[in-house]
Design a protein around this nucleic acid. Sequence first.
DNA 1: GAGCTATGAATGAAGG
DNA 2: CCTTCATTCATAGCTC
Lengths: 207, 207
Amino acid sequence: MTEEQMEILRRQIAAYATICEQLEDLYRSLTTQNDPSCNSMLRNNPYCCTPLMTTSSYLGHNHKLPRRQRWNPTAQQLQILERIFDQGNETPSKEKVKDITSELAKHGQIAETNVYNWFQNHRARMKKKQLVETHETKVAESVEKIVIQSPKKGEMQHPMLPIEEFHGRMLSKAKVSDDHLIEDMAVNSDCYSAYMNIQAENYNMKN
Amino acid sequence: MTEEQMEILRRQIAAYATICEQLEDLYRSLTTQNDPSCNSMLRNNPYCCTPLMTTSSYLGHNHKLPRRQRWNPTAQQLQILERIFDQGNETPSKEKVKDITSELAKHGQIAETNVYNWFQNHRARMKKKQLVETHETKVAESVEKIVIQSPKKGEMQHPMLPIEEFHGRMLSKAKVSDDHLIEDMAVNSDCYSAYMNIQAENYNMKN
DNA sequence: GAGCTATGAATGAAGG
DNA sequence: CCTTCATTCATAGCTC
């Protein structure tokens, strides 16, 4: 086989490689079912991407497997969305969604469903986050009131409270019902961690 | 403060750090309240994980106190999760997640969110793996049956089938319904890639 | 210490 | 709204 024949073969292969990619795209655009294997069909095939297959540049254009993408808010869009969300986080009406969408369209590609979904998701997920923040606030306040204020800054007046005594002090202030007791046990273990670390830092500051 | 005192303090802190983790686990095993903050109590506490906390090796065993930026299942937990997954890999309900979480809490730090995420990820990734394997099996079988057996080894009896003809041969055997037709289009693009590469390799072997 | 893979987590989207 | 899925991001752990 002559070098010229090899050259022809390479061109042919390159051409077919592109056709394959186009077939993949066609498949993706036709099917309504998302098929994750689709994306990696060529990539994971041991027969593909052999040295010969890298010659797709023979076709003259660098074909870049376009992927169907989901909306990704730009930084500006996010900023605006969060601002609107903060000033009244009720679900916006249809009219409001329209307005917001046209506003955001100035800063990038967007559709009304994107806005709607964003508010739904953001609201639900902020709500969950709220639980975490509530918990952390409890820890911070408890440590502030019960632990930090007792020793003077920069020194340790009493060496490390035993954990039982520490919990006793915390629980005596916190217990309301059994449920609350259990919850406060968790808060207390955090508080005690904080307590220990602060005490240790105080030691360090003296050295 | 003498160095000896510091040493005692460090040991004490390390011991209490472990106690705190155990308290956390206890809390998780007792509560049925969905509390996503639980997992990140120590992690998100600004007072934790200060330099002094890295001295946990003082406890004698090399428990390296990973900073737990994200949950890492223990071997036992993984084993249980996979067992549960295998006996019915539908997404577990909220109640089920709670039960599983309590069960796993006996074997180490965990939160309901972790369990939920694990099932989501595991299910999705098993499914994807399955599809890829199915696809690759199809490609291998098709290439074996239709492509490789036709030319004799080391030579090419007919130069490169045009892709239309190739697809015609493949589809005539594969078509069952419209859905299957579409899917097999994708398989065929892979098969043709394989076909081309094998033919090309045959050429190369002769040189 | 720069890539690579596995995988925990975050997020856009869809359906009920 | 709530749940769930598909996809993407991020990083811990590994290899060279």
